[in-house]
């Protein structure tokens, strides 16, 4: 699956995936929360899709940064789902979505603090022990820091190192955060645990005010994000890349065109990188 560009699966265009007439992703990503413990029509569709495409799972509700206890029943269901569909990559967000026993179903920023690093790392280890596999943790977009005592890159790096997990680098999230919090995106990426990158996300976003971008996944990827992507690929190993598009869905030809753009950049950058590395040998 590495070196392939995939797309986030949405029910809105399920038939397109099944017909394969226009959209030809290298793999599909789906949120286990929306697909586990279901039956009927969508279970049948999922089974058909799983025969056609490799699948990655990108979770929404694990709430790895929550102060609450891990939900082991939920994890049991995730484990079963991952095994049922032979899913190799299970990623989750470095954020929290549940606190004081209330789910909020969105990605809230964890305080960038040393105790939070230890707390989150311990929980990731617990999840990995239970699932019997490494999980992959994603840098999220955030609109305000909360009680931060360290910078974001240090927080992410320390969590990934201490937990011994893999890293999902969301290039668009870096771009969004760099704009919203006035830092340099390339310097930020250079400080991340790039040797642990197992998966990359790309997406579009929406500028809602002169000084704020929201990570909507509702627009096409813009050129500066492609440029950051190209720069990033020179620094990471070959991994799968995902196009996220959740709202304002365009014509399928346009989506395929974005997938083609991503794959063409991946081929160009990684082939060049391989040639250079081979020459050095």
């Amino acid at each position: 699956m590495s070196n392939k560009a995939g797309i986030g699966f949405r029910k809105d265009f399920a038939e397109e995936f099944l017909s394969g007439s226009v959209l030809k992703p290298g793999f599909l990503e789906l949120a286990p929360e929306n697909w586990m413990k279901i039956g009927g029509y969508w279970k049948k569709q999922l089974n058909r899709l799983a025969e056609m495409y490799p699948i990655t799972a990108h979770g929404l509700s694990l709430s790895i940064g929550s102060p609450d206890e891990l939900d082991m029943d939920f994890l049991k269901n995730v484990k079963y789902f991952l095994e049922e569909y032979n899913i190799e990559i299970y990623s989750e967000h470095l954020s929290f979505s549940k606190c004081d026993n209330a789910h909020l179903y969105d990605l809230l920023p964890i305080p960038f603090r040393e105790d939070a690093v230890k707390h989150v790392s311990q929980r990731i280890k617990q999840v990995q022990d239970f699932l019997g596999r490494q999980i992959t943790i994603e840098n999220v977009s955030y609109y305000t820091p909360v009680a931060a005592e360290m910078d974001e890159a240090t927080f992410i790096t320390n969590v990934v190192k201490e937990a011994g997990c893999k890293f999902l680098l969301d290039v668009n999230n870096v771009f969004v955060n760099a704009f919203n919090h006035n830092y340099d995106a390339k310097t930020f990426i250079a400080n991340l645990p790039l040797d642990q990158v197992e998966y990359i996300h790309m997406a579009g976003h929406t500028k809602v005010s002169p000084n704020l971008i929201i990570d909507t996944h509702g627009e096409a990827i813009i050129d500066p994000v492609y440029e950051l992507f190209e720069w990033t690929l020179e620094r990471v190993n070959q991994v799968p890349v995902l196009l996220e598009r959740d709202f304002n869905i365009p014509e399928m030809e346009e989506m395929q065109s974005e997938l083609n753009n991503l794959e063409s950049i991946m081929t160009k950058k990684w082939e060049t990188k391989n040639v250079i590395e081979n020459r050095n040998i």
Partner: peptide, 16 residues
């Protein structure tokens, strides 16, 4: 829990 009470309070207030 490794999380300090003060950090928990910030997260709890954020959610509230």
């Amino acid at each position: 829990m490794l999380l300090k009470t003060e950090t928990y309070n910030q997260q709890s207030n954020f959610v509230k």
